[in-house]
Amino acid sequence: MKSSVIIFPGSNCDRDMDVALKKFGFKNKMVWHNDNVIPKSDLVVLPGGFSYGDYLRCGSIAAKSNIINSVIEFANKGGLVIGICNGFQILIETGLVNGALLRNKYLKFICKNVFVKANKTQNKYFNKIKKDILELHIAHNDGNYFCSEDDLKLIQDNDQIAVEYCDINGEVSEKSNPNGSMKNIAGVFNKKKNILGMMPHPERVIDNCLSSNDGSYFFENLLSNMK
């Protein structure tokens, strides 16, 4: 399977993502934001970081970069697109997924491991995943998911909530909500569920020598669902 990771000025999780994708068997290429065309890919990843220094709104400038039109075209044709952290913010700003990401409720940059509950129904990312309560890492200032009541109803009715913050037992409550996100939303799909935007970083937890190995379940499962 072929993947492409887009590098924006200020991306800082692009190489971690490259290492993770290659570790689990993807043939990955790095793609510069100023290019116009993405190489032939089965998966496109918008990585975490601080593209354009988070100027204006996180992800807003990157969402207008040269490469984005071909990412949108790829996504509209049903191609798999993942946006992690700043990548999620970029997806939001392109309008490929619904909602907005506000400043964290208590105004703190949050950098820690959290548990998230994955939605396994009808999507290539989590369907059949061996573990659905995952310990992943978050590191963000603006991850407080918000959308209008109408949009919330739409994404709930269409089962588009991809991952929710929860505790170690999978209980979703205000106590396990690190940043004030509506309904503990840590990530969402688009309507067709070929696009996944989420704040937690699976690429940071792919080895037992790290603080968690649960990202491995994510990548292994995704690759096996893509075959």
Binding site: L56, R57, S60, K64, A100, C147
Partner: peptide, 8 residues
């Protein structure tokens, strides 16, 4: 198109 995010 850019200066405001009309969702918020």
């Amino acid at each position: 198109k850019l200066l405001a995010n009309l969702v918020i």
